[in-house]
Amino acid sequence: MADRSGWMASSRARPGVMLGEGLRWRAIRPDKGAGFGGFTEHSARPAPVGRLQEARVKGRMERQAILTREKPPMTMFVLDESVLRRPIGGAKVMVEQVDHLIGLAWSPRVQVRIMLFERTTSVALGGGFILLSFEDDTDLIYIESGGVSQLLDDRDKVFKAGMDFNTLIGEALSQAESIELMKRTRKEYL
């Protein structure tokens, strides 16, 4: 039997499992210091780093390892173009982040699709979500907005999110087009 475990995500922000090194640190402390997350235009990591922040980044890195383990789940991400265009952390961090996304996109079990700004389907304007599909367990939907998150196992909501995700995949750039856009965007940060 084929493994049907997988993730499908739609987001206007970068899902934690997709963050590069600089943004892993930034996302943990969005309310501290100069700039967003204690970062300035030229810093790659805010200081000082506390135990809680270290633990959160370690947890995020462990979750990211799921994508590169021996038998990773099939994953599909539809990311809003703003993920590439909003220069969080400055040019150096953004180059590293885009490189990280391109690296993920080259994995045979990961799809990264970009939803262009001009694609205005109502589904694309909604909030982000992650669908979690399991071979031997109930499928779930994870929703996060404004610092509040929910994990739901309601079959109707999971089904609706799956239908919405199919709409998003149809509207987003193809995998190859998305990689090309990421490469072009990367050059803009150099």
Results as ranks from 00 to 15, higher is better:
139 D>P: 05
28 I>A: 14
142 Y>D: 00
106 W>I: 01
160 K>F: 01
86 R>D: 06
111 Q>W: 08
122 S>T: 12
36 F>V: 10
99 D>M: 01
61 M>K: 07
149 S>T: 15
27 A>V: 05
30 P>I: 06
90 G>V: 00
105 A>G: 12
32 K>L: 13
88 I>V: 15
60 R>G: 10
96 E>H: 10
65 A>C: 01
41 E>A: 09
30 P>H: 03
155 R>F: 04
108 P>K: 15
25 W>K: 07
137 D>Q: 09
85 R>K: 11
51 R>P: 14
99 D>Q: 05
103 G>F: 11
83 V>K: 04
114 I>G: 07
162 G>Y: 04
99 D>N: 15
24 R>W: 03
79 L>M: 04
69 R>N: 02
131 L>K: 02
51 R>Y: 08
161 A>R: 11
32 K>A: 15
165 F>N: 06
46 P>F: 11
133 S>T: 13
30 P>N: 08
42 H>K: 12
77 F>C: 00
109 R>Y: 13
143 I>Y: 04
117 F>H: 08
28 I>V: 15
128 G>K: 03
162 G>D: 02
92 K>G: 09
99 D>K: 06
144 E>C: 07
85 R>Y: 00
147 G>S: 11
24 R>A: 15
89 G>H: 03
113 R>S: 09
147 G>W: 13
141 I>K: 06
30 P>L: 10
156 D>P: 03
29 R>H: 05
69 R>A: 10
123 V>M: 01
109 R>G: 03
57 V>K: 07
45 R>N: 05
117 F>K: 01
78 V>P: 02
57 V>P: 02
164 D>Y: 11
34 A>Y: 01
43 S>A: 13
134 F>N: 04
68 T>H: 15
29 R>K: 14
96 E>Q: 13
54 E>N: 00
29 R>W: 08
146 G>I: 05
156 D>C: 00
159 F>W: 05
74 M>T: 11
126 G>T: 07
136 D>T: 10
62 E>F: 02
135 E>K: 06
61 M>S: 06
89 G>L: 07
152 L>S: 13
62 E>H: 03
84 L>P: 00
95 V>P: 06
92 K>H: 00
150 Q>H: 08
77 F>E: 02
106 W>F: 08
52 L>C: 00
107 S>R: 14
56 R>N: 04
152 L>W: 04
79 L>A: 02
104 L>G: 09
123 V>P: 01
126 G>Q: 09
107 S>K: 12
158 V>E: 09
29 R>I: 07
69 R>D: 13
97 Q>V: 14
106 W>S: 13
89 G>V: 07
131 L>N: 02
131 L>M: 11
132 L>C: 02
81 E>Q: 12
36 F>P: 06
30 P>Y: 08
163 M>G: 07
81 E>M: 02
131 L>T: 02
52 L>T: 14
